[in-house]
Protein backbone atom coordinates (compact mmCIF):
# COMPACT_ATOMS: atom_id res chain seq x y z
CA UNK A 1 0.00 0.00 0.00
CA UNK A 2 2.79 2.37 0.99
CA UNK A 3 4.71 1.37 -2.13
CA UNK A 4 1.70 2.24 -4.33
CA UNK A 5 1.28 5.63 -2.69
CA UNK A 6 4.94 6.54 -3.20
CA UNK A 7 4.59 5.67 -6.88
CA UNK A 8 1.38 7.68 -7.18
CA UNK A 9 2.87 10.83 -5.72
CA UNK A 10 5.85 10.58 -8.05
CA UNK A 11 3.35 10.48 -10.93
CA UNK A 12 1.33 13.35 -9.47
CA UNK A 13 4.50 15.45 -9.29
CA UNK A 14 5.10 14.86 -12.99
CA UNK A 15 1.44 15.66 -13.75
CA UNK A 16 1.62 18.87 -11.69
CA UNK A 17 4.90 19.94 -13.26
CA UNK A 18 3.52 19.37 -16.77
CA UNK A 19 0.30 21.22 -15.90
CA UNK A 20 2.30 24.19 -14.61
CA UNK A 21 4.63 24.15 -17.60
CA UNK A 22 1.81 24.09 -20.16
CA UNK A 23 -0.21 26.69 -18.25
CA UNK A 24 2.66 29.01 -17.43
CA UNK A 25 1.21 32.24 -18.85
CA UNK A 26 0.62 33.60 -15.37
CA UNK A 27 -0.18 37.12 -16.62
CA UNK A 28 -3.37 35.65 -18.05
CA UNK A 29 -4.59 34.73 -14.58
CA UNK A 30 -3.88 38.23 -13.30
CA UNK A 31 -5.44 40.13 -16.22
CA UNK A 32 -8.21 37.75 -17.28
CA UNK A 33 -6.71 37.33 -20.74
CA UNK A 34 -5.35 34.40 -22.71
CA UNK A 35 -1.92 33.84 -24.27
CA UNK A 36 -1.85 34.87 -27.95
CA UNK A 37 1.71 33.90 -28.92
CA UNK A 38 2.98 31.53 -31.61
CA UNK A 39 3.08 28.50 -29.30
CA UNK A 40 -0.71 28.38 -29.52
CA UNK A 41 -0.27 26.78 -32.97
CA UNK A 42 1.06 23.67 -31.26
CA UNK A 43 -1.26 21.05 -29.80
CA UNK A 44 -0.73 19.88 -26.24
CA UNK A 45 -1.12 16.13 -25.68
CA UNK A 46 -3.66 16.32 -22.82
CA UNK A 47 -7.12 17.85 -22.40
CA UNK A 48 -6.09 21.44 -21.73
CA UNK A 49 -8.58 24.14 -22.75
CA UNK A 50 -6.94 26.79 -24.94
CA UNK A 51 -9.15 29.37 -23.31
CA UNK A 52 -7.49 28.72 -19.96
CA UNK A 53 -5.76 32.02 -19.10
CA UNK A 54 -2.48 30.19 -18.51
CA UNK A 55 -2.53 27.82 -21.52
CA UNK A 56 0.42 28.20 -23.86
CA UNK A 57 -0.72 25.55 -26.37
CA UNK A 58 -3.87 24.28 -28.07
CA UNK A 59 -6.25 21.58 -26.84
CA UNK A 60 -6.18 18.79 -29.46
CA UNK A 61 -9.90 18.08 -29.14
CA UNK A 62 -10.80 21.77 -29.50
CA UNK A 63 -8.33 22.09 -32.38
CA UNK A 64 -9.78 19.05 -34.16
CA UNK A 65 -13.31 20.48 -33.96
CA UNK A 66 -12.06 23.87 -35.15
CA UNK A 67 -10.51 22.38 -38.30
CA UNK A 68 -13.33 19.92 -39.03
CA UNK A 69 -15.87 22.68 -38.46
CA UNK A 70 -14.11 25.23 -40.66
CA UNK A 71 -15.67 25.97 -44.04
CA UNK A 72 -12.59 24.98 -46.08
CA UNK A 73 -11.35 21.80 -44.34
CA UNK A 74 -13.34 18.72 -43.50
CA UNK A 75 -10.54 16.56 -42.16
CA UNK A 76 -7.96 17.60 -39.57
CA UNK A 77 -4.72 16.00 -40.80
CA UNK A 78 -2.55 18.10 -38.48
CA UNK A 79 -4.40 17.24 -35.28
CA UNK A 80 -5.22 13.64 -36.27
CA UNK A 81 -1.57 13.10 -37.20
CA UNK A 82 -0.43 14.55 -33.89
CA UNK A 83 -2.79 12.27 -31.95
CA UNK A 84 -1.75 9.25 -34.02
CA UNK A 85 1.90 10.01 -33.31
CA UNK A 86 1.37 10.46 -29.58
CA UNK A 87 -0.87 7.38 -29.39
CA UNK A 88 1.47 5.20 -31.45
CA UNK A 89 4.44 6.11 -29.27
CA UNK A 90 2.88 6.08 -25.80
CA UNK A 91 -0.75 4.85 -25.94
CA UNK A 92 -2.71 6.28 -23.00
CA UNK A 93 0.44 7.29 -21.12
CA UNK A 94 -0.71 10.88 -21.76
CA UNK A 95 -3.93 10.20 -19.77
CA UNK A 96 -1.99 8.92 -16.78
CA UNK A 97 0.89 11.37 -16.75
CA UNK A 98 0.31 14.48 -18.89
CA UNK A 99 -3.37 15.42 -18.66
CA UNK A 100 -4.28 18.33 -16.35
CA UNK A 101 -7.89 17.20 -16.04
CA UNK A 102 -6.69 13.69 -15.19
CA UNK A 103 -4.60 15.17 -12.37
CA UNK A 104 -7.60 17.06 -11.01
CA UNK A 105 -9.67 13.85 -10.95
CA UNK A 106 -6.78 11.93 -9.36
CA UNK A 107 -6.57 14.48 -6.55
CA UNK A 108 -10.35 14.61 -6.06
CA UNK A 109 -10.40 10.83 -5.65
CA UNK A 110 -7.89 11.12 -2.79
CA UNK A 111 -10.42 13.08 -0.73
CA UNK A 112 -11.91 10.70 1.85
CA UNK A 113 -15.45 9.60 1.01
CA UNK A 114 -17.66 7.12 2.92
CA UNK A 115 -17.69 4.57 0.07
CA UNK A 116 -15.40 4.44 -2.96
CA UNK A 117 -17.00 2.56 -5.85
CA UNK A 118 -14.66 0.46 -8.00
CA UNK A 119 -17.26 -0.96 -10.36
CA UNK A 120 -21.03 -1.17 -10.75
CA UNK A 121 -23.57 -2.87 -13.05
CA UNK A 122 -23.25 -1.25 -16.45
CA UNK A 123 -19.69 -0.02 -15.85
CA UNK A 124 -18.18 -1.89 -18.81
CA UNK A 125 -20.81 -0.90 -21.41
CA UNK A 126 -20.73 2.70 -20.15
CA UNK A 127 -17.01 2.85 -21.00
CA UNK A 128 -18.02 2.67 -24.69
CA UNK A 129 -19.80 6.00 -24.30
CA UNK A 130 -16.54 7.92 -24.85
CA UNK A 131 -16.31 6.49 -28.39
CA UNK A 132 -19.86 7.69 -29.10
CA UNK A 133 -18.95 11.14 -27.73
CA UNK A 134 -15.85 11.19 -29.97
CA UNK A 135 -17.66 10.21 -33.17
CA UNK A 136 -20.79 12.27 -32.56
CA UNK A 137 -19.68 15.46 -30.82
CA UNK A 138 -16.08 15.84 -32.03
CA UNK A 139 -16.40 14.60 -35.63
CA UNK A 140 -19.93 14.25 -37.05
CA UNK A 141 -21.74 17.26 -35.55
CA UNK A 142 -18.97 19.83 -36.33
CA UNK A 143 -18.72 18.32 -39.82
CA UNK A 144 -22.40 18.22 -40.76
CA UNK A 145 -24.37 20.51 -38.42
CA UNK A 146 -23.08 23.73 -39.96
CA UNK A 147 -24.28 27.31 -40.27
CA UNK A 148 -25.02 29.22 -43.47
CA UNK A 149 -21.27 29.76 -44.01
CA UNK A 150 -20.56 26.04 -43.72
CA UNK A 151 -18.96 26.35 -40.30
CA UNK A 152 -19.66 23.87 -37.51
CA UNK A 153 -19.45 24.71 -33.79
CA UNK A 154 -17.17 22.79 -31.40
CA UNK A 155 -20.08 20.80 -30.00
CA UNK A 156 -18.08 18.78 -27.48
CA UNK A 157 -16.55 21.95 -26.00
CA UNK A 158 -19.86 23.75 -26.12
CA UNK A 159 -22.15 21.19 -24.51
CA UNK A 160 -20.00 18.67 -22.64
CA UNK A 161 -16.40 19.54 -21.73
CA UNK A 162 -16.10 20.24 -17.97
CA UNK A 163 -12.36 20.93 -18.40
CA UNK A 164 -13.19 24.03 -20.46
CA UNK A 165 -15.52 25.26 -17.72
CA UNK A 166 -12.96 24.69 -14.98
CA UNK A 167 -9.85 25.89 -16.79
CA UNK A 168 -11.38 28.61 -18.98
CA UNK A 169 -14.97 29.44 -18.08
CA UNK A 170 -14.67 29.98 -14.35
CA UNK A 171 -11.43 32.03 -14.29
CA UNK A 172 -12.33 34.17 -17.31
CA UNK A 173 -15.83 34.98 -16.08
CA UNK A 174 -14.52 35.72 -12.58
CA UNK A 175 -11.78 38.00 -13.95
CA UNK A 176 -13.86 39.81 -16.62
CA UNK A 177 -16.82 41.85 -15.43
CA UNK A 178 -17.88 42.35 -19.06
CA UNK A 179 -18.62 38.62 -19.32
CA UNK A 180 -20.94 38.57 -16.32
CA UNK A 181 -23.86 39.90 -18.34
CA UNK A 182 -23.29 37.32 -21.10
CA UNK A 183 -23.70 34.21 -18.99
CA UNK A 184 -26.88 32.23 -19.50
CA UNK A 185 -28.34 28.73 -19.53
CA UNK A 186 -25.31 27.24 -21.34
CA UNK A 187 -22.93 28.50 -18.68
CA UNK A 188 -25.22 27.13 -15.98
CA UNK A 189 -25.44 23.75 -17.79
CA UNK A 190 -21.67 23.50 -18.13
CA UNK A 191 -21.15 24.39 -14.49
CA UNK A 192 -23.68 21.73 -13.55
CA UNK A 193 -21.72 19.15 -15.57
CA UNK A 194 -18.50 20.26 -13.90
CA UNK A 195 -20.12 20.01 -10.47
CA UNK A 196 -21.44 16.51 -11.22
CA UNK A 197 -17.99 15.44 -12.52
CA UNK A 198 -16.34 16.72 -9.35
CA UNK A 199 -18.83 14.97 -7.06
CA UNK A 200 -18.61 11.64 -8.94
CA UNK A 201 -14.79 11.89 -8.93
CA UNK A 202 -14.90 11.72 -5.13
CA UNK A 203 -16.19 8.14 -5.18
CA UNK A 204 -15.41 6.81 -8.67
CA UNK A 205 -11.84 6.96 -9.99
CA UNK A 206 -11.56 9.24 -13.06
CA UNK A 207 -15.20 9.09 -14.23
CA UNK A 208 -14.64 11.58 -17.04
CA UNK A 209 -11.68 9.57 -18.41
CA UNK A 210 -13.54 6.28 -18.13
CA UNK A 211 -16.86 7.26 -19.67
CA UNK A 212 -16.71 10.58 -21.54
CA UNK A 213 -13.25 11.72 -22.67
CA UNK A 214 -12.88 11.64 -26.49
CA UNK A 215 -9.13 12.17 -26.18
CA UNK A 216 -8.80 9.05 -24.04
CA UNK A 217 -10.96 7.25 -26.63
CA UNK A 218 -8.50 8.18 -29.39
CA UNK A 219 -5.37 7.25 -27.43
CA UNK A 220 -6.95 4.00 -26.22
CA UNK A 221 -7.10 2.45 -29.69
CA UNK A 222 -3.30 2.77 -29.90
CA UNK A 223 -2.67 1.07 -26.53
CA UNK A 224 -2.20 -2.44 -28.03
CA UNK A 225 0.24 -1.25 -30.72
CA UNK A 226 2.12 1.60 -29.06
CA UNK A 227 5.92 1.49 -29.07
CA UNK A 228 6.12 1.92 -25.29
CA UNK A 229 3.73 -0.51 -23.62
CA UNK A 230 3.58 -3.09 -20.88
CA UNK A 231 4.76 -6.61 -21.38
CA UNK A 232 3.98 -9.45 -18.97
CA UNK A 233 6.57 -12.18 -18.53
CA UNK A 234 4.31 -15.22 -18.44
CA UNK A 235 7.14 -17.34 -17.03
CA UNK A 236 7.36 -15.11 -13.96
CA UNK A 237 3.63 -14.35 -13.53
CA UNK A 238 2.03 -16.39 -10.73
CA UNK A 239 -1.55 -15.21 -11.47
CA UNK A 240 -1.79 -13.76 -7.97
CA UNK A 241 -3.89 -10.88 -9.38
CA UNK A 242 -2.04 -8.28 -7.29
CA UNK A 243 -1.79 -6.16 -10.46
CA UNK A 244 -5.54 -6.35 -11.12
CA UNK A 245 -6.30 -5.39 -7.51
CA UNK A 246 -3.96 -2.39 -7.76
CA UNK A 247 -5.50 -1.10 -10.99
CA UNK A 248 -7.99 1.72 -10.46
CA UNK A 249 -9.13 1.51 -14.07
CA UNK A 250 -10.24 -2.11 -13.42
CA UNK A 251 -7.82 -3.66 -15.90
CA UNK A 252 -6.31 -7.09 -15.36
CA UNK A 253 -2.78 -6.72 -16.78
CA UNK A 254 -2.09 -10.45 -16.47
CA UNK A 255 -4.88 -11.06 -18.99
CA UNK A 256 -4.30 -8.03 -21.20
CA UNK A 257 -1.46 -5.71 -20.26
CA UNK A 258 -2.45 -3.19 -22.94
CA UNK A 259 -6.19 -3.03 -22.40
CA UNK A 260 -7.91 0.00 -23.96
CA UNK A 261 -8.62 1.30 -20.45
CA UNK A 262 -5.00 1.19 -19.23
CA UNK A 263 -3.67 4.71 -18.58
CA UNK A 264 -0.08 3.52 -17.95
CA UNK A 265 -0.09 4.82 -14.37
CA UNK A 266 2.35 2.09 -13.31
CA UNK A 267 0.38 0.88 -10.27
CA UNK A 268 0.37 -2.70 -11.59
CA UNK A 269 4.14 -2.70 -12.11
CA UNK A 270 4.70 -1.57 -8.54
CA UNK A 271 2.21 -4.05 -7.16
CA UNK A 272 3.67 -7.10 -8.91
CA UNK A 273 5.57 -9.13 -6.29
CA UNK A 274 7.64 -10.99 -8.90
CA UNK A 275 8.34 -8.07 -11.25
CA UNK A 276 6.63 -9.82 -14.16
CA UNK A 277 5.36 -6.57 -15.73
CA UNK A 278 7.88 -4.57 -17.73
Amino acid sequence: MVKRNINEWKRHRVQALWTLLTNSYLTGFLQGKIYRGNLKKICLPGLNCYSCPGAIGACPIGAMQAVIGSWNFKFAFYVAGFLMFMGAVTGRFVCGWLCPFGLIQDLLHKIPFPKKITTFPGDKPLRKLKYVVLVLFVILLPMFLVDILGQGAPYFCKFICPAGTLEGGLPLVLLNKSMHSAIGWLYAWKNLLLFVTIIISLFIYRPFCKYICPLGAIYSVFNPVSVFRYRVDKNKCTDCEACAKACKMQVNPAENANDLECIRCGACKKACPVKAIR
Binding site: C49, S51, G62, C157, G164, T165, G168, G169, L186, Y187
Partner: peptide
Amino acid sequence: ICMECIGIG
Protein backbone atom coordinates in the same frame (compact mmCIF):
# COMPACT_ATOMS: atom_id res chain seq x y z
CA ILE B 1 -11.30 33.29 -26.23
CA CYS B 2 -13.50 30.38 -27.30
CA MET B 3 -16.92 31.48 -26.10
CA GLU B 4 -18.42 28.04 -26.75
CA CYS B 5 -15.67 26.34 -24.74
CA ILE B 6 -16.26 28.48 -21.69
CA GLY B 7 -20.05 28.19 -21.93
CA ILE B 8 -20.98 31.64 -23.16
CA GLY B 9 -21.17 31.34 -26.95
